[in-house]
Design a protein around this nucleic acid. Structure first.
Lengths: 344, 344
DNA sequence: TTGAAAGCGCTACCAG
DNA sequence: CTGGTAGCGCTTTCAA
């Protein structure tokens, strides 16, 4: 048709012999344009496959309708599932989403913030990296009044909205589950201590022990990085104790699967010798053997909640809110010793 | 400082008492600007945290530096890993990435194309949905000269670039592996027949059988949708045959894990009663028991290759290329009957 | 070495 | 009901 890549209002106007203003109005069903005119314009726009140039509109209105996301990584099911929830809500509200990964690194996380600001996203939804202990890059966003919502791993409490799981409760519930089923010496494998989620889940764990008047043993608590290898190492440490734990609570799916592998490789049985509970999503817990008892996050819902929260902030200035998305303890084979287990 | 959300060239120019042109030039180290001037401009730009408005630049240059991605879903590790590869290459080349999901639905896939075109991405990287058999929405992209690269599930051969695994070879290799280890009756669980990947892998499977002069039995080949439930059902069908297969090749990880579950639930042993090979990534194959022998895709590399290919097309008009990323058969416990298995 | 002005595509205001 | 025009922020001529 014409050599230019995109059709503009001007192109349409020239072809129809009218002004750009008229074409613009006709296309958005302005009441001040003639019925017949509207028809003609729309017909040609359809034929020529006209699409409004989003950059012109963003330039004009200063609202690019883009939301930025920062996650530690995108391949972990937990995050991709949350992203999925965010994207769906965003799309329904005619927002695009740009996803960036910090790869659990502080420096890269700062870069992500920088990149998103350069793209001029309207707001950011983030989950901080394991490494991050300084939050200046996020504080600067608050100063610039860029709406900001954290999920799962949060910071700057009270200064921006966040979506979290009921961490303390779930840590307590898992621990109580062990206690109800006869285990008294319970190991806890967590991630870096400075993370809120670690603190809170550990808090729940300790709380349950206290309530049941179980003495707390420091060496049963191992908090390092949340990687597969560290999980193996932590489990090895626990099992090598003079008096090893009868049960282990692992703080995410990588750690849980690592613990499971290590326990098995040492020739111990799950749950008879060591019971195991993880934090994970439903997908893979069923594939392993025994099926993994786990605290299940409603990841998709967390994404939906995060995006809704951000949209609220985008629409009007609002004081920070905190949304707690409940978890559930799904009991499978890895935690309950069958009544016959002691006879075997 | 000032109430406006963003600092513009004009703001800087006014403050410095010079023209916008000068500021613009100074900022991009144009040789025709004075040393001292450049210093002053850059200093103020830094202090005021000036960022060029990307929409103005996109409007002007008509290159928004955004790449669109269409995947069947984002939560499957296979796709998220490929996305990860694409994103990394894109970011290194100062491109942003917008990810959309078709949820394996034809209608939504068309919508994704539409959305990405509205955003005016410079090019698109896509993996077609299971449902898609009509490719008009992609053909229209070719007509509009929008660079397009397919990966894994491809179409419109020869008309656009694509990145694929060595499907036929891998299907053949897996089948030969079974044959070498004594299985003769091999079941094949695939996805919808119209998909290239299914055809090619089946081709490899049949090829191996022919070469070893094993009669081909139609009822050993089950091709339905690639969902967990269909995988269970397909396995059930195979095992219910008068003469059930000694080995099963499952066409992706969902199907493989489904098959594993079903085989176990029927009280059969893997690999003694039924050997199993899947197509999957390394991550979860090791968690299950027995560990799953699998054709491993180099997913991250496929993403890297796809993005590189697209960038080439973006830089200059080029005839379509096809990149084949080799797979590897990783032998684990699920396929090799131990020498003692028959004694047990 | 610097400034003025046009124009990218669009909207919105003011005239007619 | 329709047209003209200014302006969003930036780059890029052309003049000085």
């Amino acid at each position: 048709m014409n050599n230019k890549k995109h059709v503009s209002l001007k192109d349409l106007a020239e072809e129809l012999g009218v002004s750009v203003s008229t074409v613009s109005r006709a296309l958005k069903d302005s009441p001040e344009v003639g019925e017949e005119m509207r028809e003609r314009v729309k017909k040609l726009a359809g034929e020529w496959n006209y699409r409004p140039n989003p950059f012109a509109i963003s330039l004009l209105k200063n609202n690019p309708r883009i939301i930025g996301i920062i996650v530690p990584d995108i391949v972990t099911h937990f995050y991709s599932s949350i992203i999925s929830g965010i994207s769906d809500v965003a799309r329904k509200n005619h927002y695009s989403v740009i996803i960036t990964s910090s790869y659990e690194q502080y420096e890269l996380e700062k870069q992500c913030v920088e990149d998103l600001m350069n793209i001029r996203v309207e707001g950011i939804i983030a989950c901080i990296s394991q490494e991050t202990t300084d939050y200046a890059h996020f504080e600067s966003l608050i100063m610039q009044r860029v709406p900001l919502v954290f999920f799962d791993r949060v910071c700057l409490h009270g200064r921006c909205s966040c979506v979290v799981a009921d961490n303390a409760e779930s840590g307590k519930a898992a621990t109580e589950h062990f206690l109800h089923h006869g285990a008294k010496r319970i190991g806890f494998i967590g991630g870096a201590n400075h993370l809120d989620i670690v603190k809170q889940r550990k808090h729940g764990y300790l709380d349950a022990l206290r309530q049941y008047q179980i003495p707390i043993e420091r060496e049963l608590i191992v908090c390092e990085k949340m990687t597969y290898e560290e999980g193996r190492e932590a489990t090895r440490k626990l099992l090598a104790l003079p008096c090893p734990p009868e049960a282990i609570l692992a703080m995410n799916d990588t750690l849980a699967f690592a613990a499971m592998k290590e326990i098995k490789e040492q020739g111990l049985r799950i749950p008879q010798d060591v019971a195991l509970i993880g934090y994970t999503d439903e997908l893979h817990s069923n594939y392993v053997e025994p099926a993994l008892t786990a605290i299940t996050h409603q990841t998709y819902e967390m994404g939906v909640a995060s995006c809704n929260l951000l949209l609220q902030h985008l629409q009007k200035n609002q004081s920070p809110k905190k949304v707690v998305v409940p978890t559930r303890l799904i009991v499978r084979g890895s935690s309950v010793k069958s009544p016959f287990s002691k006879i075997e």
